[in-house]
């Protein structure tokens, strides 16, 4: 058996593995993507006949206040929950990496929300917001808390944020912990000799060193925030009066059962472009700020 023969057999094996898998990927990922793109130029309702209507869906998309509001809601949700999640996770991670008693158990407990399904968690919190919180708020006489926060158009979005954060914090904390554990101990010792303490130490020593983990958490959190669906489904179903309708919920709701297959396909195309643009921007912007040790 000569080497040349072996190499060509090896090449054939690689191709025999790669081509079917790429074909599968094309069939269930790229092809539906192309179909969605094609449907976005039609007035297809999901059934029956349809016509090609050019860019009309896109034209109406930018004038549709319901679509506009879903973008606004999704962005506000994603940004607020990303900031809240990262601040709380960072504090928790600093606590969980300090010299505490029962470190392993505490870390294990704080990770629990991440393993539970977000739909069921949403249902549990929905009950909490509707019955428990108002009864506590009413008894203590806190204004604004004596009724369900999910029932008001001005506060329902924050209920969704709380549930989203409750689960996201678990994951982000663990990622920050693994980041903090990569920081060598002697760096801190050198810093304390130089007189850096407290927030200064965190700001100038710790934070730059765990910058890559900050990047990961920002990207993860913002991406999950922009795709929020389960929590909406469980907590508000987009209500009250469409105030908490996220982009993916609207696409699901009106595209699949609302007879707007074509129109929502156009919405999905724009949504896709927005996600790609943000991801690329984040990786370029945040990726360049990492500190090398």
């Amino acid at each position: 058996m000569d080497s040349k023969k072996h190499m060509s057999a090896r090449r054939r094996t690689f191709l025999a593995i790669t081509i079917p898998i790429m074909a599968l990927f094309f069939l269930f990922n790229t092809l539906p993507l192309l179909q969605g793109f094609a449907y976005s130029f039609t007035n297809f309702r999901g059934f029956g006949s349809y016509d090609v209507i050019g860019f009309r869906n896109y034209y109406y998309l930018f004038q549709d206040s319901r679509v506009g509001h879903s973008y606004l809601f999704t962005f506000v949700y994603a940004i607020v929950s990303t900031v809240l999640t990262n601040v709380i996770s960072m504090i928790l991670a600093l606590g969980l990496t300090s010299k505490i008693v029962g470190k392993g158990a505490l870390r294990g407990i704080y990770f629990i929300p991440n393993v539970l399904g977000s739909l069921v968690i949403g249902y549990v919190f929905s009950f909490f917001f509707t019955y428990v919180l108002p009864s506590v708020g009413g008894a203590l006489g806190i204004p604004g808390l004596d009724a369900s926060i999910l029932a008001s158009t001005s506060s329902a979005w924050f209920g969704v944020v709380i549930v989203g954060c409750w689960q996201a914090i678990a994951l982000n904390t663990i990622i920050y912990i693994s980041g903090l554990e990569t920081v060598p101990k002697d760096v801190y010792e050198a810093a304390s000799i130089d007189g850096a303490t407290g927030f200064k130490k965190f700001r100038y020593i710790t934070f730059p060193l765990i910058m890559p983990f900050f990047t990961i958490n920002m990207v993860l959190c913002l991406k999950n925030g922009l795709m929020v669906f389960d929590q909406i489904m469980a907590l508000t179903k987009g209500g009250p009066s469409q105030s908490t309708e996220s982009i993916s919920y609207l696409i699901y709701q009106n595209g699949i059962s609302g007879g707007q297959f074509g129109f929502q396909s156009a919405n999905a195309v724009i949504y896709f472009i927005v996600i790609v643009a943000i991801s690329v921007f984040q990786m370029k912007f945040l990726g360049g700020k990492e500190e090398q040790l």
Partner: peptide
């Protein structure tokens, strides 16, 4: 980077 929302409807049909 492809969100499920854009694939969802064609995927149902397919």
């Amino acid at each position: 980077f492809v969100p499920f929302a854009i694939l969802m409807m064609p995927e149902v049909k397919q």
